[in-house]
Design a protein around this nucleic acid. Structure first.
Lengths: 202, 202
DNA sequence: CTTGTTTTTGAATACGGGTTTAAATCTTGA
DNA sequence: TCAAGATTTAAACCCGTATTCAAAAACAAG
């Protein structure tokens, strides 16, 4: 075995690819961009990966997994549905226009219409996020904290949709809609949908 | 003067570029793709346009203008705010996964984070659509048809955001969210936000 | 038909893409 | 230290890119 295991090396490349994609776009990124980001030569990259396409898919896949797992972890210890909901909304939005995780996701929006693999990744992520919200909404409803105006599935889908859209607006540097404003906008919907003022104590 | 005026020729090229972009992506499209779509050679394209970049920007710009103007025209003769709102929601969504207008818009989502021109185009379109919804909401509120749960600006921003996001889901071929389902989801929000059942007579 | 102009082509240019491969380097285990 | 193996490089390859340009074609007016 080598100092760095084969899979570790691939993790490095995936991370380099992630950065390169953000810089040049999923369809504009090149082998040399990835290699430069990894401090290697294009040939070395191809030594660990059969071709560029697979590396890019892995990078996008890993980015999504990371994004989703991070959101779950953020609310893992919480019990209050209100706090859970508010924190989840925040965690679905970019921290700013250059947020790397959201930038990576946004790269796929257009490509998904042309690439089955990317479409599947995006769709799966969307559905998992919907399930996440749905679980929060339902427990809140069961506890009497929330009084849902619609089926929890409808509200959850809309919440994820709002996150997605404001993620795009923020990364496109909308002059007035930043992370804080986006949270307020989504919260406005969440309040009417749950019948809860959604004010956290701290 | 020639048979086709210079500007007419550019319109043809813009339309060819639009199709080529949809096929290959904003960052994956090439001069030959556009030329082929126009039935010309790459040299002939460059005879009418100084470079590929400007042609692509023009194509995106024209596509957005067309999209927005079409939406305005759809509700131009209507007086009932309910009908206006419902029709507007429909007109903001793709007719199907291959809807060319929405496909074109979605291409820019990722590129806007890297390209100022594209970011400006998208942001401007968003703001104009928000204003469009806001006008509908306010007149409905003044007539007593709507009882808004929030500031009209908040609701309008959320409605456009929902359209955008479901546009992405539809073009990515989500297995259960199609145009009709997206309309229902957005209408669910619109109903609670306006306090109106939003049922049109026909 | 001929002339003058606009448009299109096809080739040339120069550069960059992904991928392959032989040689060089680095790393590990004995 | 030495040999075997894994890793990296650098160069070669071929294809495709945007752009330029001279020549050809298409066209309008006289």
């Amino acid at each position: 075995m080598t100092r760095k295991s084969r899979t570790d090396r691939r993790v490095d490349l995936i991370d380099a690819a992630r950065r390169a994609i953000i810089r040049h776009g999923t369809e504009g990124v090149g082998l040399n961009h990835v290699a430069e980001e990894a401090g290697l030569t294009s040939g070395a990259v191809l030594y660990h990966y059969p071709n560029l396409g697979e590396l890019l898919v892995d990078a996008h896949h890993a980015g999504m997994e990371r994004f989703y797992e991070l959101r779950l972890k953020r609310i893992s210890g919480m019990r209050d549905p209100v706090e859970k909901l508010v924190v989840t909304i925040r965690s679905g939005l970019p921290h700013g226009p250059d947020d790397p995780d959201v930038r990576l996701l946004n790269e796929l929006g257009g490509a998904a219409a042309r690439n089955r693999m990317y479409a599947l990744l995006l769709t799966t992520l969307y559905d998992r996020q919907v399930a996440m919200y749905q679980s929060i909404l339902e427990t809140g409803g069961a506890l009497g904290t929330f009084t849902l105006t619609d089926d929890s599935l409808v509200i959850a889908r809309n919440l994820v949709a709002l996150e997605d859209a404001y993620g795009y607006r923020i990364t496109a540097r909308h002059p007035v809609i930043g992370p804080d404003e986006a949270v307020d906008l989504i919260l406005a919907y969440a309040r009417t949908a749950t019948g809860n003022p959604l004010k956290t104590s701290h």
